[in-house]
Design a protein around this nucleic acid. Structure first.
Lengths: 194, 194, 194, 194
DNA sequence: GATGAATGAGGATTCATTCAT
DNA sequence: AATGAATGAATCCTCATTCAT
């Protein structure tokens, strides 16, 4: 992962990976079928584990809002903890889809379902509003967290990423509009556009 | 772009690109310094143009909320219009950063500044709340729109992407919390962040 | 073929073949799909041509015995003319079967059918005896000629191979037994063995 | 030999051979110097033994014709009995020459000398005609038997190979020509060769 | 004696790039 | 300006062989 993070999947050579691992080139092939398989196994073990950790973390919360908070915080924490994983995950994600499609799909589903369940629970608890397009909420949470991690990585990872969980949650919950001015009038306004 | 979209940057060969363009391999090198330069020029011309279009679109609006709406809608529209660009942009973005870093950075800056100006104007107009971490708002908008495009691409692009602009805007403005239950009690929690 | 003849198919490297051909390694792949394909194309063009020459040669004869003679002589002549082909053909034949099975099978069939037709014609003409197991006759002709070529190759190819056509024909026609002593009595003799 | 027979010498791996033998890869090197040595030892022991068996078999006969018959029959029997040996011997023979040249040469000599002695004895006994090119007779016997085994192997070995000894012997002795028609007129043609 | 993990040299193949036409 | 045949560096991967256990 260190090599993939530094060079990117395609620019990384088996020789380089082997050297970094302190073994001979051929040794790599005792543990991985081929170059692709290094990514596939990474996603099958390490990354899947991380994503299952998200689920366990969320389930410790007592209400939906706290679940969402814990999910976001844990996500940021884990990626902050392992920068190489973060880089590979962020930078190679779409490339990886071509290679490790089933693994990626499974992880994405896991995450996506988790958000869906949290939102639905929040709606039952009355803390989350009913008139939501669930798919868009998922995309907002996933996209925003991803972008937050990306920005952090490109900044060189110098600030505390996990500390952004709280303000992100606030943003998701309250949105950006002024409570007085916009909340009520918005109901009819969008009808004019499009 | 068609070839990059279909095969990915690294798997695309100059031969394939030349064949798709109906010219000889060598001809490519009369217009591009090398393979990387194809991407660089793409971002320098086509993509930059698209992003400048976002700016012009936003500036036609009379208030910040409408500006944000127009930005999002135009973004979705443009990517819906040119799927190849969308795929290259979404799938190769992080890979491309290694190759066309300055071009990407410039475009990103353009977009980022546009959002910043919209938010600040909204705050002056009183439509956007004051207690926002501007950087996070940017990440939310960019990340969510990106993720929305990605999801659309992976679905095969069968539904109307631009139609999501309105519900996305609503989500950004109002957030996901129930107005009664959460708005007040959350006020003191995130007040610490700037 | 020169390289295959000298080193054998498996020990021959593309680099060596390219150097011998006076081109770069990559150039080989402009004309051959892969290493195997070099053999396959050789058999598809050059060798098939040679074998079809056998057929034309045989057809010029007026009777079966002369046909057989011409076939054998032409076979020896062609292999004598192109030692590299001879070596590759003799040494790599069985290896080649694994690679170019259809091509080999076709050529073998061609040759085999030719002998069959000659023998049958000879039987009609009365010059070849009727009580023959046709399959064995084919194997005798093919095997003996092959072995004759092999021996010639291993001797360094110093004597005139084609000159052996006449004595070989004699051997095939008359056998090795003394005419007086054995011809008649053999009919019942073999019954005792086995 | 089982592995060599199935995969060919060059495609066979030490790992595969070791697995088939039920030992570890390294163990192979306690008994064989290297991969080539497996072939060399095979020819030095097993194959040499088989060929010496031919000699003993032939020596049990009372006259030259029977000796020849026994040689051929034993040859076919042994190769029928051990298909793996047959395949390795037939398919890898020419490849093997590069590796186990001295061993092959020795065996070939053994066989060749045996035929020579049989023929010479037959000539003294009066059963074999005098005007023969001994070298060609050897090539005929060896080549034909080889080709017969090859054909049998490629047919899948479904018929009784050893049963072909008798018709082969008949073919060698009497040739293919009709006794009346050809025997006399041919007499003067090949008379020039020794 | 047996093991099998580790080695690393070697080779097939790809493909960005060049350049004579 | 356009071509496309030729190039050869670069890289993945295999597998015979070694050697510490």
């Amino acid at each position: 992962m260190r090599v993939f993070a530094k060079q990117g999947f395609f620019n990384a050579t088996i020789s380089r990976i082997a050297r970094e691992a302190g073994v001979a080139d051929g040794t790599i092939y005792l543990y991985f079928r081929n170059k692709d398989d290094i990514l596939i196994q990474f996603f099958n073990y390490k990354a899947k584990q991380v994503f299952q950790g998200f689920k366990r973390e969320a389930e410790q919360a007592s209400d939906a809002i706290e679940m969402l908070f814990r999910l976001i915080r844990r996500h940021l924490e884990e990626f902050q903890k392992d920068r190489n994983m973060a880089i590979v995950y962020q930078s190679e994600f779409h490339q990886i889809r071509r290679i490790a499609e089933p693994q990626i799909r499974e992880m994405y589903q896991l995450y996506s379902d988790l958000i869906a369940r949290i939102i639905e629970q929040g709606q039952q608890e009355g803390s989350i509003r009913q008139d939501l397009y669930l798919g868009l909420v998922k995309r907002m949470v996933i996209g925003t967290v991803d972008e937050t991690i990306s920005t952090w990585l490109h900044s060189g990872g110098r600030y505390d990423l996990a500390a952004l969980a709280q303000p992100l949650l606030d943003l998701f919950l309250r949105g950006i509009a002024s409570p007085r001015a916009w909340q009520p009038s918005l109901n009819d306004e969008p009808a004019q556009q499009g």
